[in-house]
Amino acid sequence: MRVEKVNENTLRVSMTREDLSQRGLKILDLLGNRERVLEFFLSILHEVDEDNDFASDAPVTFQVMPNDGGIDLLITKMNKDNDMPEEMRRFFEPEANGVGGEADEDEAA
């Protein structure tokens, strides 16, 4: 596995088929079990984020691209104020996902 810091908000993790196999995965597994995929992504993030730069409260996105029999992962830390497109900002806002907002305030009253 090779890790490259693209910029302060993005890491590129290049994994071979052997790297995936050592973690008990095949490329096609990334299309299947959602919980297993999430567990895999989080384990990679914890492994490569040695300085805990990406362990903040900001959302993190993963992009997966095939490469020579393996995969490249682009792990991007989103800055909710500046970098995030409006559609993604709404997605990550608690009110947009049924958490917080007026409905919860009404229930609490």
Rank of each mutant, 00 (worst) to 15 (best):
E86G: 01
H46R: 15
A55H: 01
V48S: 02
R36Y: 09
V3N: 07
M1A: 11
R36H: 13
E8N: 02
V3G: 01
I71M: 09
E50G: 03
R36G: 10
I75W: 00
V99T: 15
G101L: 05
V99W: 15
L42F: 05
E86K: 04
V3T: 02
L74K: 11
R89M: 03
V3M: 01
L25M: 15
S43P: 04
F54L: 03
L25V: 10
E35H: 08
I71F: 07
R17W: 03
D72I: 03
D19H: 09
E107N: 12
A108W: 10
D81T: 12
H46N: 13
Q63N: 08
V64K: 12
I27A: 14
E105F: 02
S21I: 02
P94R: 15
R2Q: 14
D29N: 12
G100F: 08
G32K: 14
R90F: 12
G24W: 09
G32Y: 06
L45Q: 02
E93C: 15
M1F: 11
N33D: 12
S56N: 07
G98I: 10
D81N: 13
K5L: 06
M65S: 15
D57S: 09
L25D: 11
D104N: 11
G24Q: 13
L25T: 13
E50W: 00
V64A: 13
R2E: 12
P85A: 02
N52S: 02
G24H: 12
R2N: 12
V99D: 15
P66F: 09
N97W: 07
F54Q: 03
R2A: 08
V48N: 01
T61D: 02
A58D: 11
F91C: 05
Q22V: 10
S56D: 11
N97A: 12
A55C: 05
D72G: 05
P59V: 06
A96W: 10
I75A: 01
K77P: 00
V37F: 04
E95R: 13
T10I: 09
H46E: 04
V64S: 11
D49P: 04
L42Q: 06
F91Q: 10
E87H: 15
D49K: 02
R36P: 05
G100E: 08
D49N: 00
I44C: 10
G70Q: 11
V37H: 05
N7P: 04
E95S: 14
N52E: 02
N9L: 04
L38G: 14
N33C: 06
G24L: 08
E93F: 15
N9D: 05
K80N: 12
A109G: 07
G69A: 14
S43Y: 07
S21Y: 10
D29E: 13
M1D: 12
D57Y: 06
I75N: 02
M15N: 04
M1H: 09
R36N: 05
V64Y: 03
E35M: 10
N33R: 09
V48Q: 04
E18I: 11
D104P: 07
P85Y: 00
D104Q: 11
G101M: 06
K26P: 05
T76N: 00
R2S: 07
R17G: 03
D72H: 11
F41I: 12
A96T: 15
R36F: 09
E105W: 05
E86W: 01
D72W: 04
M65G: 14
S43V: 01
M78A: 10
K77Q: 01
Q63P: 00
K26S: 09
E107V: 05
R2F: 14
D106L: 13
T76G: 00
Q63D: 05
K80S: 14
A58S: 13
M65Q: 14
